[in-house]
């Protein structure tokens, strides 16, 4: 089952774009937004909790194509990106994203089980800013996001 209905491609909803979902007082802080892209619902949930704790507003996508739809509707400040996903992989998404108008802006942090040096180099060459090898924990996400200049 898909995490979100197909029509959300045309008009994504959720905390990124819908002001009614924003909690009171949030506007004053201009929370940074992070799009969490992973085909595992469990990973998305864990990452969401960690990133919300360090002050991000979260949107989720379960593959590269869905992530692209999000970005075209509202470019996030950061993308936490899995590599191997159905429909469109993380690296394919990244190549397309970096060629889109405004697509150079988001800080992209890979988060994947791929830990081969060649794969890491490929990700950086395609425009990734940082790289997390799974398994990860809250500490690693926090220091990697700081490393990438996000916090």
């Amino acid at each position: 089952m898909r995490a979100r209905p197909r029509e959300s491609f045309a008009r994504p909803y959720g905390s990124l774009t819908n002001p009614r979902q924003k909690r009171a007082g949030r506007e004053a802080f201009h929370l940074k937004t992070c799009l969490v892209v992973d085909d595992s619902r469990v990973i998305r949930k864990v990452a969401r909790r960690i990133l919300e704790d360090i002050g991000f507003d979260i949107a989720e996508a379960s593959d590269g194509l869905e992530a692209l739809a999000w970005c075209r509707a509202a470019m996030p400040d950061a993308v936490l990106l899995d590599w191997n996903m159905p429909v469109m992989t993380g690296i394919e998404f990244l190549k397309i994203l970096r060629a889109e108008p405004g697509g150079e802006r988001p800080t992209v942090v890979f988060c994947t089980v791929e830990n081969d040096v060649d794969r890491i180099r490929e990700a950086l060459d395609c425009g990734a800013d940082e790289y997390i090898m799974k398994p990860f924990d809250g500490d690693i996400i926090a220091v990697k996001f700081a490393e990438a200049g996000l916090t």
Binding site: R121, D139, I140, E147
Partner: peptide
């Protein structure tokens, strides 16, 4: 190696 080491320095 993921606590504080930037990925470019790792590789």
């Amino acid at each position: 190696v993921q606590r504080g080491l930037p990925i470019r320095l790792l590789i």
